[in-house]
Nucleic acid binder design. Structure first.
Lengths: 212, 212
DNA sequence: TCGGTAAAGAGGAATAACCCCCATTTAAAT
DNA sequence: ATTTAAATGGGGGTTATTCCTCTTTACCGA
């Protein structure tokens, strides 16, 4: 009986070729390929045999990694979840681990390490790559102050603030008074720990709070 | 006789699994895998049979896509070069095409489209995906005025302006008067076609005029 | 050596951004 | 039922940014 794998990644070429690769491993077979979180959930509903392990990307359109991982973790507690990302940044790792991933793999691992990791996840339930375990404690410690929680209106404002327009123009676009905009600005300055609009825009891009 | 392919991509997992996938196509074999431009060049020197087509990523450490493509284009004019990127942004496409690529593929193409594209490149010498050909003329037209030429001092200023500091602080760091800084600001506004510091910072990041 | 031009800098004024204080309303959480 | 948080808005003030015009210095090429 082979170990059944599900994969979700928005890069079609990566998805298909990774599937191909995993299928070429001795003990594995791919039972599910999805281009985003929503497709992954649909796939899980339709197939007869649920996967043992699901590999999922962090950033995906329609439904992203953390969201779908959280849903699967409650709906299918038996499935082991592995995050797959190209970026080794704290934010992505944290959000995936918190959502319920038991392992985090970087896309630049060697195929043999991938196979090793998948076997380890299947047998022991978890896997930590070197780089991850090194920073693990630090990550968990910084857990709270790392989190930037924004309201919907703040997100909208922030997105508009990352542009060449003045606050007056932003206020007009959001159908709000300039004073309200000034309030959002102040709130964002505090939350992002900056002291100018440029700093705010830069932080927003760094923390990927806006599309850029 | 199979068509020989070389691949360069810094994501190990993608590189290996893509190689795997291409090898599974009927008419193709992979003769060269590299994690960056330098490795690719070394690989070309050592192997007996040069590839017919080389697929290369845009962003890679040590030596990036445009650099290695330009080198290969002069040293091995017979090799057909294909850019492989996840981002469909004008800058990446342009720099690769200008360096000598005859095709540009996005990483979210379907494997069958990849195979089709590779065959087309091998037979006709070029391939244009739908999205690319749509914008092709516009890209080439904007070629020159797209180029932003900055002086060294302007580059330094721009880098410092992409931060949370005020112009006064920047002036101090550059040992210049605030008025001189104001002159750089004005020059940059014109060159980048923006009307605020936020817009300037954003454009600088988009055009990769600063490290971010 | 003459002219052009790029870098550095100045003055002044208008506008945008920033920073406090504060109030109301609504909805969710305890 | 009371607190909490989100969304909205106002007054009034201080800086920072932006936008003009203008000067000096210096270097480079004809």
């Amino acid at each position: 009986m082979k170990i059944k794998i599900g994969i979700a990644d928005d890069q079609q070429l990566f998805l298909r070729s990774l599937s191909n690769l995993i299928s070429s491993f001795n003990d594995f077979e791919v039972v599910c390929e999805a281009l985003n979180g929503e497709e992954l959930l649909k796939c899980l509903e339709t197939i007869a045999t649920t996967p043992d392990i699901i590999l999922t990307d962090v950033r995906m359109p329609v439904m992203d990694g953390p969201t779908v991982v959280a849903k699967i973790a409650v709906a299918y507690p038996g499935i082991k979840l592995v995050a797959l990302s190209m970026k080794e940044d704290d934010h992505s790792i944290l959000s995936m681990l918190r959502a319920g991933c038991s392992a985090y793999l970087l896309k630049d691992v060697h195929p043999r390490d991938l196979e090793k990791a998948l076997l380890e996840v299947h047998n022991t339930g978890y896997y930590n790559s070197d780089t991850l375990s090194l920073h693990y404690r630090r990550l968990l410690r910084r857990h709270e102050d790392d989190e930037v929680k924004l309201t919907d209106r703040e997100k909208t404002f922030l997105q508009l603030a990352c542009s060449d327009s003045t606050y007056k123009e932003i206020a007009a676009k959001m159908f709000l008074s300039e004073k309200t905009i000034d309030g959002y600005r102040e709130a964002l300055f505090l939350k992002l720990n900056v002291k100018s609009r440029v700093g705010m825009a830069l932080e927003a891009i760094r923390k990927e709070l806006v599309v850029f």
